[in-house]
Design a protein around this nucleic acid. Sequence first.
DNA 1: GCGACAG
DNA 2: ATCTTGTCGC
Length: 232
Amino acid sequence: MITAQVPADWPTTEGEARAVQDALRGRVVRDESGPPPGTGHVTGVDVAYDDDRDLVAAAAVVLDAATLTVVAEATAVGRVAFPYVPGLLAFRELPAVRAALDALPCPPGLVICDGYGLAHPRRFGLAGHLGVLTGLPTMGVAKNPFTFTHPTLAPARGSTAPLLAEDAEEVGAALRTRSEVKPVYVSVGHRVSLENAIAHTLALTPQYRLPETTRRADSLCRRALRTLSPPA
DNA sequence: GCGACAG
DNA sequence: ATCTTGTCGC
């Protein structure tokens, strides 16, 4: 496991963090459809926290997109880089996530984040931010609708509805990955189209509501945190 | 001003 | 995010 360092110029205040988002959001590329589902690598990233010890553990798990078999994995631990503030999640998670991605022995391909990309108050969520910093194609799959809304969704797996901001701007999609089960919320990050992001999400959910990528990354970063500081 | 609010 | 057992249901 690698140690993640918080960059010296990392934002300290909410104002600084918002300024960074405003400065970087224009660099997001949205005119590429991205790698097609079922080919190459898909990588899940996630983090777990130990707020008492101010620790964060990140995991990156690379899957073969065709078989959903684990190809490689890496973890990183570090100090929590920023408090949790809705809309500023990236500043809390990115240093550790980047360190885990850097520790991988192979290219990650498409990176799937646990959170949002375009679906964000300033249209620059975790996934878009990670994409701009790394140049990698990225997308977000979140478990909650945040401040967004969507029309009622049909009950069958594969049903979608536009995810809408207050001004009716479409920022992503609610997607039913299991029939009769609460949907997930998909939004583009960097260099991936929404249509492709939805297709990837369906390809990664043959059995469970959440993508295999985030399920694998979630369990790995929790395990890493446990191993580091065992329960009392 | 108050509440809501990805993880 | 995190604290947490059993339990109802497909």
